[in-house]
Design a binder for these strands. Structure first.
Lengths: 258, 258
DNA sequence: TTCAGGTGTTCGTATATACGTACAGAGGTC
DNA sequence: GACCTCTGTACGTATATACGAACACCTGAA
């Protein structure tokens, strides 16, 4: 392998600056950005000036640097290009990091009223919940399935409830159509679905809807783990999950066909 | 002004590459990207290699370069940071393209019960409606104003209707408080407001609410044009406007404080 | 008011990087 | 199979850029 020169260090510096400014609400000073980029101030000032001149950053009246209109436009066009799975991956990763539990995306299978798991980031915990991707499961006994039922057309949901045989997987599986209907209605109001030991004993799952174009629910994002561990952190998990679902819904709203 | 050196040319080259890849569905070759960036291939290959190493680009099995996971994650976090006007711009552009009419965003002025137009994309038609940005107009005679009245606190709306002198701008301006109250109630139900020749003879406007955090209406998105042209395409315009308002509402829902 | 610490700016010099050139290889055409 | 065109790669050299050092200025604390 011939010896080739290293890539220019401005690449990592530029992205370090952009990433930092994307995470901060307020602008940042030259000195702070130089510290974050681990680079001399006189080197960083050249990069900042160049990005300001090109409209990717702006410098406010306090001398703080912020993301500029061209960066926002570029970001919008990048996000608009992605499909759900591309957009979901970093969100799933962050959610798994925040909660310590496995995070997944599930959608309605195209040919049957079943949930299909299309992406996941497994928990770092040695004791973790997991499910094979591509797996198809019943709607009525999973948090994802209940979210999808809550947001599908009312007549399609009614047809499903009339026709589906609610077999028990565990002693906690809901097998009463009346009880399930009531719970689906509550999920529609609350936005989140929680299952405890319904599909697998000892496993809880918490799911939220992901909205696509026109507000339709196209998928659900879910975290799942051992019921006792999920129980102790449920409140924080709900907050993290709502935020993750919202950022994905935002991202999906931007990806309309042109 | 002391003579300082120019910013490094890699800045413009990096953003040129990213912008181009964001617009293309397929990947692009090294030679094509070098042409687009107007730079020697041997210079561009160093930038590409650096961005691939850092995960901002990937190189597929055909040797084509594409946006990588770190660029997608950066873009998502940039978009999640924006305010209404930044997010609105591409939506207004698309709406103006789809409908052929001028599209605008209006909000409630902070110091008076007036509409203020804060952003617009003018129609490409030589015959077009336009209004200067920053312009402040009465609520009762504009589609935006009626949307905002329909979604504000009921007592604030009542106070406005009691105190505002409903002067006529045209023979079609609604000057009866009773009629206006009824119409506001209908707008609250229907979601859309339509004005025909009320503020300016020969001009119609169609407005929909934009919801922010917690479902509050923070602005309205509107298309406006000559009444006859608006009339002939009203149904399609309603569909396009609803979709635009929803995508903005979802985008605004995503920009929550973490 | 003084002082210390941190800021942003400037510039000459060191050096990292850009690039021109050559070339091997691939693909398409005849 | 030969030939042409374009690709991506390699590398030595030219040069654009990084950066260390110095300094004026600002802010906050004593």
């Amino acid at each position: 392998m011939p010896l080739t020169q290293a890539a220019p260090q401005s690449i990592d510096r530029i992205f370090s600056i952009l990433g930092h400014l994307a995470r901060e609400r307020d602008g940042e000073s030259l000195s702070e950005l130089a510290r974050r980029a681990d680079a001399p101030k006189s080197s960083v000032v050249g990069l900042l000036t160049g990005m300001v001149d090109s409209g990717y950053l702006i410098r406010d009246v306090q001398g703080k640097y912020r993301l500029g209109p061209n960066m926002v436009a570029l970001a919008i066009s990048v996000v608009a290009r992605q499909g759900l799975q591309d957009l979901a991956r970093p969100v799933l990763q962050r959610l798994a990091d925040q909660t310590g539990e496995t995070s997944l995306i599930g959608t309605l299978a195209s040919d049957a009223d079943l949930v299909m798991y299309v992406d996941k980031v497994e928990s770092a915990n040695p004791v973790r919940y997991t499910v094979p991707l591509g797996e198809r499961r019943e709607l009525y006994a999973s948090a994802v399935g209940k979210v999808l039922l809550a947001h599908m057309a009312a007549d399609r949901c009614d047809t499903y409830l009339r026709n589906e045989k609610l077999r028990a997987f565990t002693p906690k599986t809901i097998t009463s159509v009346r009880t399930l209907r009531q719970e689906i209605s509550e999920i529609r109001e609350a936005g989140l679905a929680l299952t405890v030991d319904e599909r697998v004993v000892g496993v809880s799952a918490l799911a939220a809807p992901i909205h696509g174009e026109g507000g339709r629910v196209i998928a659900a994002i879910v975290i799942a783990g051992p019921s006792e561990r999920m129980r102790t952190a449920l409140k924080q998990h709900k907050a993290s999950l709502r935020a993750a679902a919202k950022s994905l819904s935002l991202a999906m709203a931007g990806t309309t066909t042109h």
